[in-house]
């Protein structure tokens, strides 16, 4: 049994993450460098979509990260709420803008891809719609953090919102899915996407992992910064009391 309180110590956390950070940066650079080289130069153009298929290499991992980061945020929020774990609280807060960024990237690249493929930048496809709603939920989460001054209260309010969102997201997803099939019979984008050619897999897989380590890298940076900000705030309060 690991003693969880050891991980709750921010100093210990900073020490460990500072040690692994260079490795994370290196792995991210390797995976993303290899992935983009594969995506732009090696992988074959699609027989139907032509060169435009290369947008997919930016888009698919971003869409995956949009959901992955929300999941991480919800787990961190639950840990923060149940065990009052200060580092989990910081992790949830630091994740939100990264997740919102990935969601926006997925939306924008989806629109750029949709214009030549569907003839329109935006269609009310079930996926587009539910990703857009996910983006709004990220914004609401960030909004809670920015409008409550006291970090302890803001953290718990945001954690409640993140958990409410994690219960609601599947409901929203399925309702939007169903609404879409009622209103708009067949979409060009099939459920599984176009079946992926073996030549595209190396680029796609390395970018999926590269995006994940990129998230870990930015998360560590943002968490370090947030911990320093909190320490400064605590010192200022202490100073003001004297």
């Amino acid at each position: 049994m690991v003693n969880l309180h050891r991980f709750a110590n921010p100093t210990w956390f900073v020490k460990i993450t500072t040690a692994i950070l260079p490795w994370v940066v290196g792995i991210t650079a390797l995976l993303m460098g290899y992935g983009f080289w594969q995506a732009l130069f090696v992988s074959p153009p699609d027989y139907q979509m032509g060169e435009a298929v290369r947008i997919m290499y930016v888009h698919v991992p971003a869409a995956y990260m949009a959901m992955m980061v929300y999941g991480a945020m919800a787990v961190a929020s639950a840990v923060a709420l149940i065990w009052r774990h200060p580092v989990a609280d910081v992790a949830a807060k630091a994740s939100a803008p990264i997740g919102a960024g990935f969601t926006l990237l997925a939306l924008v690249t989806g629109m750029l891809w949709g214009q030549p493929m569907w003839g329109a930048f935006w269609v009310w496809d079930a996926r587009l719609t539910s990703v857009l709603i996910l983006f709004f939920i990220y914004l609401a989460y960030i909004g809670i953090w920015t409008s409550i001054d006291d970090p302890l209260r803001a953290g718990r309010a945001a954690a409640i919102l993140a958990l409410v969102g994690s219960v609601n997201l599947p409901i929203i997803h399925y309702s939007v899915d169903w609404w879409n099939t009622l209103h708009q019979p067949a979409s060009l984008l099939r459920a599984g996407g176009p079946s992926v050619d073996a030549g595209m897999l190396p680029a796609l897989l390395s970018l999926v992992f590269g995006y994940t380590t990129f998230y870990v890298m930015v998360l560590i940076w943002r968490m370090h910064r947030e911990l320093v900000v909190r320490r400064i705030r605590a010192l200022q309060l202490l100073h003001a009391q004297e």
Partner: peptide
């Protein structure tokens, strides 16, 4: 902020 927090969760009710 209240609208931003609540409206996404109203979507399923609206749809059905």
């Amino acid at each position: 902020l209240l609208s931003l927090v609540v409206v996404p969760f109203f979507v399923p009710t609206l749809i059905f």
